[in-house]
Design a protein around this nucleic acid. Structure first.
Lengths: 366, 366
DNA sequence: GGCGCCCTCCAAAACGTTTTGGCTTGCCGC
DNA sequence: GCGGCAAGCCAAAACGTTTTGGAGGGCGCC
């Protein structure tokens, strides 16, 4: 069912049919009616490929998902699930490429842009120094990033203020009387991990405390487990730990439990992402919301604006994070252990914040 | 950089350049060399859209992900993450559409095929009566399904034998001395849920036991939690429960814990999917492997074969499941059963099935 | 009655490929 | 010297659209 056969069936020219369908004003109302009815009746569907060739726009947006073998970034994929429907509602297709971070990744981006496969690109998991961003900027490809970067030039982006998030989380723990607050971070080349580390640090120095211990690893349960175990055996066992992601937090909770300690009481844990299962860990995880649907929505809007010629530098948003309090954090253990149990109702005296804890022998037997 | 400018730059015809690049034998080796070098040098990339228009093949495969708002099917998305790279390695693009199950979903499929957007389709989460499948069959679109269906005609599919899986799981629990084995199932319109239910039932009737209680709900943590809670309060509390998915199992474990019972001891739980976090629940979840990467690999291979003209009815595989034993299941609680432990070699006496257990005070204080 | 204008429609070009069906040229064999 | 053949190249058509630049006719106005 090409436009040609439709036209001949109607005894009209291709031009007229095309214009009738596209709603141009230079076709008589009666004719348009007739064309539309026949198109409907015969199930005519314009061939998108031909249309694209002619118009020069591919009608698709691309996204490259980092696929380290075996393990896939849940957050990333959830985002994808939200983006897909939004784009198709806007009449755009989403083409997906997978590539392990690194060389193949850049290759995927080049593929997408140099083969004219996409009109625009969505990009996530920004890094501090992000070659993908410089590449896209250089080639003038419209794109919107989830997360900021340290590139000089500006680009459309949507981010959640991870720095404030982890500053807030740290203050919350300080309010609970913790004074030794560790950080289990994802690789800090990632902007989100970097920001979260900064927030944590900022909140600590604001009250004159030194940094607690910080450990880094992949954002997986396994890694969270391993790092937390290490922490539990080290001399620097903190009473609270911030985990850069929920997956790491899940591993950490498990490590705490298998060390015979009670998460949320002996050791507080706060995560980030509010994965569906975060409400079902033991204890349920205090964490930060990821308003995936809302972010996807906004990113798509931004991209559409960009494709419409909007100025990228006007399209930069940083949203404020929202903490979801559950039971994996709470008052610092009274005298560091021993007395155990609850402290004085959530308020803690100054001394509680002093860092002699690292000399505390009781911490070693964990 | 079109083929035209490349040709004129070389002083050759478009035809020759095209054929040189495509490796046809009717172009002199020297010329081919020259063309390739110049193409390389000038960064020529054939325009995919034009190529597609001409060849009539879109070079992409489509997949429609069911996107119930807010919550996304992790398994589905993980699959996607695995499929993407494989396809691009084969030179195919993956276009993704999202649609809530139901009317919009069919619309998405029609969009994909009627706009000539895709050469083939991957389809997951098959249902017992699956309109998507009949539609694709009717239109002769090559596709491979993850999961079987109850359609008359046959199509390319890859499935894991969920029936055997849950039969195995049930036998395992019987071997542990359980005789009241419940099922928390996903909606049984889904083929996978249906199969699992059958397996469970089969194993029970094989030893002459009646069905335990079966509850149904969405495959989410919340739903698993709710159903398990209901079960715990009902008169038909079983000592073991099969959950159709890990997400449901996570919810169930949580419900058990908050009822003051110990999962794996008071109530055994077995899930399905081996989500990354399954090793980190409390207790770690006994479940069935989902060899996502291997399945994705095979499905892509099948699709490629199909696009090459293979006969769909030759492409049907059912793999055998593999159980991953952890600690969420174990011997039936002692006095729950009286005769306890293993019975007479897999056979159970009638009395063991009587529901006096519900009078057991230990169960009520939950 | 002629001019110009609007309304409706259309032929043809263009998008960038691939492929069909040649056309030269040179060489070999007789 | 000529027919035949292979090697190497190419012009043009085709894929299905959109868009440009009109064409034709009717009508109002002077």
């Amino acid at each position: 069912m090409s436009i040609r056969s439709l036209a001949s069936r109607l005894g009209l020219s291709i031009t007229t049919v095309s214009r009738a369908l596209a709603g141009y004003p230079d076709v008589a109302a009666a004719t348009r009616e007739r064309v539309q009815r026949e198109a409907e009746r015969s199930g005519y569907r314009p061939n998108h490929v031909a249309r694209r060739l002619r118009t020069g726009r591919s009608g698709t947006v691309g996204i490259v998902v980092p696929s380290e073998q075996g393990t896939f970034d849940q957050f990333f994929l959830a985002m994808l699930g939200a983006i897909g429907p939004l784009l198709s509602r806007a009449g755009l297709d989403l083409v997906l490429m997978g590539a392990p971070p690194g060389k193949a990744e850049m290759h995927a981006y080049r593929h997408l842009v140099e083969h004219h496969r996409v009109d625009g690109i969505l990009l996530a998991r920004t890094r501090r120094d992000d070659p993908r961003i410089s590449y896209l900027l250089k080639h003038g490809v419209p794109f919107v990033a989830h997360g900021r970067s340290e590139t000089r030039s500006s680009f459309a982006s949507l981010d959640i203020d991870g720095e404030t998030a982890f500053a807030t989380a740290t203050e919350r723990l300080l309010g609970f009387g913790h004074s030794q607050i560790g950080l289990i971070n994802a690789p800090e080349q990632y902007m989100f991990a970097h920001h979260r580390a900064i927030g944590w640090q900022r909140a600590l120095t604001a009250v004159g405390l030194p940094q607690g211990p910080v450990l880094r690893g992949e954002a997986t349960e396994e890694s969270g487990h391993r790092l937390m175990s290490a922490l539990l055996q080290s001399e620097r066992l903190p009473t609270a730990v911030l985990c850069a992601t929920d997956r790491m937090a899940v591993g950490a909770l498990h490590a705490i439990a298998s060390a015979g300690l009670r998460a949320g009481r002996d050791v507080s844990v706060i995560g980030y992402d509010d994965l569906p299962m975060a409400g079902y860990t033991d204890p349920p995880l205090t964490t930060f919301e990821q308003p995936i649907a809302r972010m996807a929505q906004r990113m798509v809007e931004m991209l559409l604006a960009l494709l419409d010629g909007a100025d990228p530098s006007q399209l930069r948003e940083v949203w404020t994070p929202r903490l979801i309090a559950r039971q994996s954090d709470g008052p610092a253990p009274k005298r560091m252990r021993r007395a155990g149990k609850r402290a004085n109702g959530g308020r803690y005296v100054q001394e509680a914040r002093h860092p002699e804890w690292s000399d505390n022998p009781q911490l070693h037997d964990s």
